[in-house]
Design a protein around this nucleic acid. Structure first.
Lengths: 207, 207
DNA sequence: CGCGCTATATTTAGATG
DNA sequence: TCATCTAAATATAGCGC
């Protein structure tokens, strides 16, 4: 015993690990654990699971039972059989069903866009009137920053409000309905889920 | 103690659970565990994970960070342009490569969190000092609005910058080449996975 | 990197309400 | 169906190799 340093499993902190090195190690260990867990569900429970993991550096790791192709195939074609989700019975913490939430988001999004446009015009006008040097790129840059920030907040929102509760308690929820069969034109639509936030959604009701 | 029956965690048997009822229960519990594990990798390690689970009865459950469509977008586009991602040359419309974008978001997220925390404390203090009526819900409500806005922007960002580019262009091609059937072999092979015949663990090499 | 080790933190099977 | 409880099995952080 040459050391008194902390040992053994620590409470899992849900914040970004600062040290690059330990982040890598932790990632590898947990990824292995995740895949093992998955395999402990597939066989005993007769489930099919597909997992795609992108490491912090962007390297992909795949788990698939029976294989990833089958899972993805079922996923896309299966959007057909998602009637159970469509009724939007699953609700969020706020009492809104996901569909409602998403719909509201869409509407509000439109309003935000318009408002932003107005503000930009307004700003341009103001700057021109003051005779200051002006060129569009300036605004574009600003918007980039704004949107990055918004994106960040979005991630936070997605995690905190949706994922947290869903994960810690019970993963209730909804999956998106791509509305499609599996022809590839529609496969693309699968990415246009009008609803399907970050962490999400298993289902309520019968398994 | 009215029973002497086995209790507590049993050794996990890698064979199909026979009792239908307990298989369901076990499935649900383990699925929750799996999703939780996944969330414990995403944030701390800065990884992106997508999980698709089909219950024994065929019901789909999805986990996605930041969301499933982004994961799939990266997966499919990556099948054709994985090299680009690895060397960081693949870019979004904003000029940032995906990985950079994700990384930046993660980092900035941490900062935002701290700043927000400070602002809240500051506000509370200020209100108390002014002797105004105060209750925590007020702040929570405000945050709700802020986050809704952020959430909306997130949807926009995710769709526009990630999914659209990734899918509309590349994915269709991939699929087309596969003979128009559920053959994702091409996509998978492009990753050089030692991949998932039945259940397999991810790729080797640098992360 | 990954493996093995060890002390702890977590997870979870089965029972119960 | 779903939450809770509890004992035991597991996962894993930090260290060395």
């Amino acid at each position: 015993m040459t050391s008194k340093a902390t040992r053994g499993r620590q409470e899992v902190e849900m914040k970004k690990l600062q040290k690059e090195s330990s982040r890598q190690v932790t990632f590898s260990k947990r990824r292995n654990g995740l895949f093992k867990k998955a395999s402990e569900i597939c066989l005993p429970c007769g489930a099919n699971i597909g997992i795609i993991v992108f490491s912090p550096k962007g390297k992909p790791f795949i788990f698939g039972h029976p294989n990833i192709e089958t899972i993805l195939g079922r996923f896309f074609s299966g959007s057909l059989a998602m009637d159970d989700y469509e009724n939007g019975s699953a609700t969020t913490e706020t009492g809104l069903c996901f569909q409602e939430l998403y719909d509201e988001c869409e509407e509000a999004l439109e309003k935000l866009k318009e408002e932003k446009k107005k503000r930009i015009e307004h700003t341009k006008e103001a700057m021109k009137n003051k005779g200051e040097f002006w060129w569009d790129e300036a605004i574009d840059d600003n918007m980039g920053l704004e949107e990055l920030e918004a994106y960040l907040k979005a991630i936070e929102e997605l995690r905190n409000n949706v994922a947290r509760k869903a994960n810690e308690s019970m993963m209730c929820d909804v999956v998106a309905d791509s509305g499609g069969y599996f022809d590839f034109g529609i496969a693309a639509d699968a990415f246009n889920f009008d609803h399907c936030p970050s962490h999400d959604f298993g289902a309520a009701g019968q398994l």
